[in-house]
Design a protein around this nucleic acid. Structure first.
Lengths: 275, 275
DNA sequence: AGTAACTGTTTATGCCGTACACAAGATGTA
DNA sequence: TACATCTTGTGTACGGCATAAACAGTTACT
C-alpha cells in the first residue's frame, strides 16, 4: 500500500480561471458547484451524468488513493471512454475540485447550533466532525486548493463553525481565524493519522513496527539529538499496538491538541470579558 | 501560475521498503540520509554527485513547484541524461524524500536553547522557524511522508522542539504531542499562505481580487449561510492589499493561532503546577 | 428540410517514470 | 601484464498519463 504524493509532477488546482460555457467545453468547476445545470437546447440527452463521474472518481480515490485515480480508470469504471469525461468536466483538476466539494459535503445535521452548549462545545464538535470527514476520505487533505475557500461545502462548514461564536467577544476577522486554525488542525491531523495508519496496516511501518519510542532510541545519536534521545529512552512514549492501536493513539493526540486550542481561546475570551 | 496537487496520479513516498545496496541499484533514501556513502570498490569515479542531484531538484521545485519537477528536467539542468539520475537515486519518490530532508534542513542556530526564555519563548520561536522554513520551500508541505517522522532533519527539529520543555510537567508522550501539534500547524499555515499568496500574485485570486469579505458577501445566500453571511456583510473582515498584503495578513493569522495554542498549553501547565 | 448544437468515440501527441542492455572506465585478481 | 568484475553514464524502449482534434450520430430549433 502506497500513500500518495506527487508522481509525474503534482499539478495545480487553480481556484480562479473559470470559463463560461460559451467557450464550447463544459463549464468550470466553480460554475458547476455554484450555478444551475442549465439544460442544453440541442443535441442528445446525455446518458453520462456529472454526478456519476464525481461519484465514481471518489469511490476510486477511496479505494486506491489519489495515485490510483486517472481519467482512464474513472471512465472504465463507468463503462465509457476516457474522453467522454471531458464532455462533463473541463479538466482533471476541475474534477478534483468537484470531488473535494462532494466528499467534504455539508456538515452533518448533528452539528446544528445548540445554544445551550456554548461556544466551546460547538467548536469542539465541529472540529471533530471535520477530522472524521477527512479520515473518511484521506485524499481530501492532499488536494490543495489554490486560493481562498470558495466551495459551497467549505463555506457551509465555515458557516457552521462561525455560528457557535455568535455572541462572543471576537471581531469577524478573529472568528474566521479561529475556525481556520481549527480546520487546518483537523485536516493536518487527519493526514498524519491516515498516513501512519496506512503505513502500519501495510506492514511498512518504520523499523520496529509500531514502537516509535524504540525506533527513536535506536536511531538517535545522543550527542546529536540529546533532548529527543532522553525522551525516547525514558520509556515515556507508549508503544501502540498496531494496527488499530496506532490510529487510536493518533486520535488521542488530536484530541489533546484540540483541548489545548480551545483552552487558549478561552483564555483570550476571559481576558476580554474581564476588561 | 499553478499550485500543485496531483496530476498523472500522485504516487506514494513509502517510508519503509528500504533496500540494501546489495540489490544492485543505489541505496534507498533512508540509507542515503542516515548511512555513510561507502565508496564503491570498482568502476569509474562518479562525476555526478548525489548532492548535486538533490540540489538541482530543489532549485527546480522552488522555481516551478512540484508540477515542474520531472526527472528529465532535473537531469537537463545538470547536463546529464535522465537515466543517469537513477545511478544515484532509486526512484523519484526517494528523490522527493531526499529533497524534503535537505530543504527542511537542520533548525537554525538561533533556535539554540535559551534557558532564560522559558518554554514559551522557545516553542514560539521554534514554531515560527518551522513556518518560515516551509514558506521558503512551499512544496515541502505537499510531500506526504508515509509513516512516522524518521528523517534526520525532522528529528533534529523535534529534538530542538522538545528541549524547551525539559523541565515542564508533561509526560514524554505529551511533549511529543505538543511539538507535533505545533509543527503541523506551522506546516498547514504555510501551505495556506503560499497557496493564497501564489494565487494573488498570479492574478487568479478569487472574484473580487483581494477582498475576501466582499467575495463572501456576494457569493453567500443569507438563507443558506446565515452566520457567515452576517459576518461578511458586517465589514469586520479587512480587505488586504494584494499581493504582499495577503501574505502579511496570513502571517498575522498564523501568529494569532499560535498565541492561542501556547496560551492553551500554559493553562494545562498551570493546572498541574497548582495540583 | 435544413442547420446548428450537443453527445460519445476514435485517433494522435507529447510527457512521464523507469526497465533493460550496452560501452567505456576503473579496480581487483591471476 | 592480462583478464574478470563491477561501476558509471547512455540509448532505446514501453506502458501510462492528460488531453487536443476530428468525427459520426442524435436532437431540437428555424
Amino acid at each position: 500500500m502506497t500513500t500518495e504524493t506527487d508522481g509525474g509532477g503534482a499539478r495545480g488546482v487553480r481556484g480562479g480561471e473559470r470559463r463560461g460555457a460559451a467557450a464550447g467545453g463544459p463549464p468550470g468547476a466553480f460554475e458547476l458547484m455554484w450555478g444551475a445545470p442549465a439544460r442544453p437546447r440541442r443535441g442528445p440527452r446525455s446518458v453520462l451524468r456529472l454526478d456519476s463521474v464525481v461519484e465514481a472518481a471518489i469511490a476510486l480515490a477511496d479505494e486506491e488513493g489519489l495515485d490510483g485515480l486517472s481519467m482512464a480508470r474513472v471512465a472504465e469504471r463507468l463503462g465509457f471512454t476516457t474522453m467522454s469525461l471531458y464532455r462533463h468536466v473541463a479538466s482533471k483538476d476541475d474534477l478534483l475540485l468537484l470531488m473535494l466539494n462532494a466528499a467534504v459535503g455539508p456538515p452533518p445535521e448533528t452539528l446544528a447550533v445548540d445554544p445551550a452548549g456554548g461556544w466551546r462545545a460547538g467548536l469542539d464538535a465541529w472540529t471533530r466532525g471535520m477530522y472524521d470527514r477527512a479520515l473518511a476520505h484521506p485524499w481530501i487533505t492532499r488536494i490543495g486548493i489554490g486560493g481562498a475557500p470558495n466551495m459551497p461545502s467549505q463555506l457551509a462548514w465555515m458557516d457552521r463553525g462561525v455560528s457557535p461564536l455568535a455572541g462572543v467577544a471576537l471581531t469577524g476577522q478573529e472568528k474566521l481565524s479561529v475556525i481556520l486554525m481549527l480546520s487546518r488542525y483537523a485536516m493536518s491531523s487527519a493526514q498524519l493519522t491516515s498516513d501512519i495508519a496506512a503505513a502500519a496496516g501495510a506492514g511498512t511501518y518504520e523499523p520496529d513496527d509500531g514502537d516509535y519510542g524504540a525506533t527513536l532510541a535506536r536511531l538517535l545519536d545522543p550527542a546529536r539529538f540529546p533532548a529527543l534521545h532522553a525522551l525516547a529512552v525514558s520509556g515515556e512514549i507508549d508503544p501502540p499496538v498496531p494496527p488499530e492501536g496506532v490510529a487510536d493513539e493518533l486520535h488521542a493526540e488530536f484530541h489533546f491538541g484540540l483541548a489545548r486550542m480551545l483552552d487558549g481561546l478561552d483564555v483570550l475570551l476571559r481576558s476580554r470579558a474581564a476588561r
